[in-house]
């Protein structure tokens, strides 16, 4: 067996993944909280107000990382779902389903903070432009995946149906991203791309730090949800029993 294949199989082994996640989660939380505190302290207290928007620009440090996460998590969920459908990797199936509520949380925060940012800057809480509408569709896709997953009596069948829906919903991701380019929208075009950024460095740095913290939040939360599912499904295995009764992590 090749090295890559062995790692792949090890990752799919429930007791190994359960134990590895249990060891990793506290570290991920630690980094997430440290980076989040640093980035938000910088963004909220140190960074300057915007020349046009004034203080309301501080909502950016929550809104923009959430928006980035909302569609990155969807992409990851679809990739996990794809692996689950083609190779029947149980761990990928669990991780796809565990991603949905976290992605939904980020999407909800994106929509609410965007709305609260839109009122003082644009003059409205909500408009039906392409960017805002496609982000709302993303929330419904997450809720659809979660609903479909729980609608089946047999959890594995539900997970597979939900994974298929997540793959179909993938078409929404380029629509969200390019909506501000393809159509006239109230929402402004993206500020940060591969070719640089139109945000001044004094505001960009705290933004990037919070965005990194958000990635650690997703990692910790995903593994924490994965562990619950792993234990639930392997309750009859000896390692699960040993962990519950012995309390060994």
């Amino acid at each position: 067996m090749s090295r890559a294949k062995r790692i792949f199989h090890q990752f799919g082994s429930p007791p190994w993944l359960f134990r590895f996640a249990g060891w990793l989660i506290p570290w991920l939380w630690l980094v997430c909280i440290a980076l989040g505190a640093w980035g938000l302290w910088w963004g909220l207290l140190i960074a300057p107000p915007d020349y046009l928007q004034g203080e309301s620009v501080r909502i950016m440090y929550l809104h923009v990382p959430s928006a980035w996460m909302s569609y990155s998590i969807y992409l990851l969920m679809a990739i996990f779902g794809f692996c689950a459908l083609v190779w029947h990797v149980r761990a990928a199936e669990i991780m796809a389903m565990a991603s949905a509520p976290i992605g939904a949380a980020f999407t909800l925060v994106t929509l609410v903070t965007g709305s609260l940012w839109g009122r003082p800057t644009w003059g409205t809480y909500w408009v039906w432009d392409a960017r805002l509408t496609s982000e709302l569709v993303l929330l419904f896709l997450y809720l659809g995946v979660m609903g479909l997953h729980s609608a089946f009596d047999e959890p594995r069948k539900g997970a597979r149906a939900a994974a298929l829906l997540s793959l179909v919903g993938l078409v929404n991701i380029p629509i969200i991203h390019y909506s501000v380019v393809w159509w006239n929208t109230l929402h402004q075009p993206g500020s940060v791309g591969v070719d640089g950024s139109s945000i001044h460095p004094s505001m960009l740095w705290p933004l990037l730090i919070v965005a990194l913290a958000a990635k650690f939040y997703y990692g910790a939360n995903l593994l924490s949800r994965t562990r619950v599912r792993l234990l639930e499904e392997n309750r009859h295995r000896r390692w699960a029993r040993a962990w519950v009764t012995g309390g060994i992590d």
């Binding site: 203080e55 509520p101 903070t113 609260l116 939360n221 924490s224 949800r225 562990r227 619950v228």
Partner: peptide, 27 residues
């Protein structure tokens, strides 16, 4: 702008805390 900024961060704190605590409680 203060109420909008405070509102945004309070919403974020509530949603993310709930989302992180839910699996811990379930475990």
């Amino acid at each position: 702008h203060t109420p909008f900024i405070v509102g945004a961060y309070v919403t974020g704190a509530l949603v993310f805390t709930w989302c992180a605590v839910a699996p811990v409680m379930r475990m």
